[in-house]
């Protein structure tokens, strides 16, 4: 490559890089401004557990996205047409971690939910709509826990066997099944959690 050609490339790439830099600086400024001035306390709501509740919902939402991708990759694995096997290994690990984090925050906000006060969500439901607590919330709090062993088992098998798994139909089926069950358990818990929160937030 001649010296003139190198100079030309340099002059062509520099404006693009500087534009990206400018956009990043503006984005950073916008984020800092929002973080410093936005009244987050108002949107989170009152209460000691508002932040924990928001974190639980946020991580559950992330998990919804990632477990949907995992379900698609599990289907590709089941049909033996998967191209992104390393992605499936990574995503199964991510859903395991997100399940664990969502469960931890869920435990935390379960404290105000079942608090022995007249205005706690549990007291409200028992007084006004007992089935919401006795059937739907009780089921939600248990089935949410199923997501962790299912995703950990899937991730473990995917990493332990690696690409050897692609040649074994029985193991492909088992991992696909684990990820399908994880998705079913998670979406039930997510849907019921959203419904209960809509009726009576913490």
């Amino acid at each position: 490559m001649s010296s003139n050609q190198e100079n030309l490339n340099h002059h062509q790439s520099w404006p693009t890089r500087s534009l990206i830099l400018v956009v990043l600086v503006f984005l950073l400024l916008a984020i800092v401004t929002i973080l410093l001035t936005a009244p987050f306390a108002a949107i989170l709501g009152p209460g000691t557990y508002a932040l924990a509740g928001a974190a639980h919902g946020l991580f559950a939402f992330f998990l919804l996205i990632v477990s949907t991708i995992a379900l698609y990759l599990a289907f590709r694995l089941f049909t033996n047409r998967i191209k992104a096997f390393p992605d499936l290994q990574l995503i199964s690990t991510v859903i395991s971690v997100l399940s664990f984090i969502a469960i931890c925050f869920g435990n935390w906000i379960y404290i105000p939910y079942r608090a022995a006060t007249s205005n706690s969500p549990k007291a409200y439901f028992l007084a006004n709509m007992p089935e919401v607590h006795r059937v739907f919330f009780e089921f939600k709090e248990y089935i949410a826990l199923f997501t962790l062993p299912l995703s950990v088992a899937a991730a473990f098998i995917l990493w332990r066997y690696g690409k050897e798994l692609l040649e074994r139909r029985d193991l492909r089926n088992l991992v696909s099944l684990l990820l399908l069950l994880h998705f079913i358990c998670f979406t039930i818990a997510f849907g019921l959690g959203a419904a209960v929160t809509k009726l009576r937030p913490i």
Partner: peptide
């Protein structure tokens, strides 16, 4: 199907996978 033609790196038994799945079931 060419996309899935990847050679085995080792020859493992399926007992490890079965153990992982059954133990998850026992936890539930």
């Amino acid at each position: 199907m060419a996309e899935t033609k990847i050679k085995s790196t080792e020859n493992s038994c399926n007992g490890i996978a079965i153990a992982a799945a059954i133990s998850a079931m026992l936890g539930m």
